Simulated assay, not measured.
Amino acid sequence: MSAPTISLLLADDEHLIRTALAQMLDLEDDLDVVAQAAGGDEALAAAVEHAVDVAVLDLQMPGLDGIAVAEALATQLPGAGVVIVTSHGRPGHLKRALAAGVSGFLPKTASARTLAEVIRTVHGGGRYVDPELAAEAIAAGDSPLTPREADVLELADGGAPVEEIAQRAHLSPGTTRNYLSNAVAKLGAANRHEACAIARRMGWI
């Protein structure tokens, strides 16, 4: 008696990668790609519509990112497993993904065979995290930033003036400056531009 087929959603904004991956996974007898999406919002809607067993999500997509889709699926389709693939395996992203209930996390350099095995593991209730990404996350430690400091630093990332950041964060300019200076000090940066770069590299914003 053959094993039941695992229905999949593939979400990646790079069309060539997504279609190639779908073709490779469809060669597996027990895997069936029933939906594809190029962005996060589309991925969430398609996953729920098709009630997929496992959603394979790119970390960075237009609209909702892979982690935000995972968070939404946890309430809208709680039975689905989520695997995130990424070309940006930063420590903070892995920790956010695990907190969001993601069961699989691996780099885009992984083979289709490895991905297929991870999908089966996640569907069976297991978890898989790429060993190198896990080691980097452990070595990096937790973010020293408070959630509010991280929010303000992320708003500052494009070089916006304090007044604009304050308005978007619903804070006073003085409070915004305090959060920024705290973040700069905690990250050992020379200025907020450098602090943004450090926090982004670590996946903390």
Rank of each mutant, 00 (worst) to 15 (best):
S111R: 05
L59P: 08
T109E: 12
K95R: 15
M61T: 02
A150Y: 12
G104V: 08
Q167M: 06
A160P: 02
L27N: 04
L8A: 01
G89Y: 04
R113W: 00
Y128E: 15
I198Y: 15
S181D: 15
A43D: 02
A150Q: 05
V162Q: 12
D26Q: 07
Q36G: 00
A45E: 13
A156F: 04
A55K: 03
T86P: 15
A45T: 08
S87F: 05
A68C: 11
L155W: 06
L153Y: 03
A22Q: 07
P107T: 15
L153C: 04
Q167C: 02
H93A: 07
T19M: 10
L145S: 10
D13S: 01
G104A: 11
I17F: 11
A156K: 12
E163N: 07
G159C: 05
D151L: 14
D53P: 03
L8G: 01
G174P: 00
L21G: 06
P173N: 05
V152E: 12
A11K: 10
V122S: 05
E14H: 14
Q23I: 08
A99P: 08
L21S: 05
S181L: 07
A51F: 07
I17P: 00
R200C: 05
L153H: 02
L16D: 00
E28M: 02
Q76F: 02
N178E: 12
A166R: 12
W204N: 08
G124Y: 10
I6H: 05
E14G: 00
E117I: 09
L27V: 01
L21Y: 09
L8P: 00
L153D: 02
D30Q: 10
H15Q: 03
I84D: 06
A74G: 15
A150W: 09
I17V: 11
E149A: 05
L31R: 05
E136K: 14
R127L: 05
I67Y: 09
I84K: 12
L133R: 09
R201P: 02
S143N: 03
Y128T: 13
